[in-house]
């Protein structure tokens, strides 16, 4: 077995183990939520007997460890259980919402990743110039504002003062791609503004870090021009840290969208989770958390693998 395959399998196993640990943490955290669904659904006037009967029906009367094992067993066989509030299958609920979240994250990533890497390379090429400073100040300010603030500013500017884009990102059944892109433009822009700075600054720093290397001086002494020095001699060696920060931000785009989805009333997974917390629909909350955790672990694994695949010293043994 090649060392790379062995490494990937090893990391996957570790990832699964972390996921099990995370499921335990999620379960315990959700247990700590005050109140439960029986009280929430039946209201203030319910008698203790009806509440207890309702709990027994949902299986909530069992001890927490038994419920955890039961839940984990279901998860491992691909069954996330049913919603306590509606009785629907959580798996299918999540698949629908998750698709929407992925669409929004993909939209934002398709803009922000090329933008950030290009700006980072240009800032490194023209470092300490006016251009470099403007890019740095602009990206830094965008990252310094909380995302709901950025979101409301965009709504104010682009859908209230000059009504170009809708402030509610919901679309009906079977919209066209253009319509979807149009309706989710503002939430996507909000995410772009929030994640671009981090990736751009890491790209710039990783490249500049390498500029003092002897092989960069060697390239210059071979008569290589500044753009080629950066693209061909510095960038390939800076890929590992760039890939890692991109993966981190992609994970954030998927798991960190909760606030943006709420602001724009976008029916993604984050929105589902927030609603479920309000309803104390804990099985749904657990399912959402687990999906988010899985995405985080998977993207970080992908970053590790790519870092190795782009490093000849690890790829080609002596």
């Amino acid at each position: 077995m090649s060392p790379i395959v062995r490494m990937i399998l090893g990391r996957l196993a570790l990832g699964l183990l972390s996921l099990v640990l995370v499921s335990l943490v999620i379960f315990m955290a959700v247990e700590l939520l005050p109140g439960d669904i029986a009280q929430e659904v039946l209201g203030q006037s319910a008698t203790p007997e009806t509440v207890a009967a309702f709990r027994a029906e949902l299986g909530l009367d069992q001890a927490a460890p038994i419920r955890y094992v039961h839940w984990l067993g279901g998860v491992l066989t691909g069954d996330l259980g049913n919603s306590l509030a509606t009785g629907r299958d959580i798996g299918s609920m999540i698949v629908d919402r998750f698709g929407k979240t992925l669409f929004l994250a993909g939209y934002a990533a398709a803009i922000s990743v090329p933008l950030a890497v290009t700006l980072g390379i240009l800032a490194a090429l023209y470092r300490n110039s006016i251009f470099d400073r403007i890019v740095n100040v602009a990206t830094l300010s965008s990252i310094s504002f909380p995302e709901y603030f950025v979101a409301y500013i965009l709504i104010l500017l682009l859908s209230i003062n000059t009504p170009v884009f809708p402030s509610i990102a919901d679309f009906g059944r079977d919209p066209s791609l253009g319509d979807m892109l149009y309706r989710t433009f503002l939430p996507a822009m909000t995410l772009v503004l929030v994640v671009t700075a981090h990736m751009m600054r890491m790209t710039r720093a990783s490249i500049i870090n390498l500029m003092a290397q002897p092989y960069i001086e060697m390239a210059r002494l071979k008569g290589v021009g500044p753009a080629r020095v950066i693209l061909r001699h510095a960038l390939p060696n800076a890929l590992a840290p760039i890939i890692n920060v991109v993966a981190l931000n992609l994970a954030y785009l998927i798991t960190g969208v909760v606030i943006v989805e709420v602001v724009f009333v976008y029916p993604g997974l984050g929105q589902l989770m927030v609603d479920s917390v309000a309803k104390r629909d804990i099985t749904v909350v657990q399912g959402c958390c687990l999906v988010f955790a899985g995405i985080y672990i998977l993207l970080n694994l992908l970053a590790d693998v790519l870092s190795i695949a782009t490093n000849p010293q690890l790829l080609h043994r002596k």
């Binding site: 092989y215 060697m218 071979k222 390939p236 060696n237």
Partner: peptide, 27 residues
């Protein structure tokens, strides 16, 4: 700078102290 670059690696070349550090590890 452009005219100087045209001479370097062409009519004047350089051999550095540490070849291990002066070869680009990515190529």
């Amino acid at each position: 700078p452009r005219e100087r670059r045209r001479l370097r690696g062409n009519r004047i070349a350089y051999v550095a102290q540490s070849a291990a550090a002066s070869f680009n590890p990515a190529h």
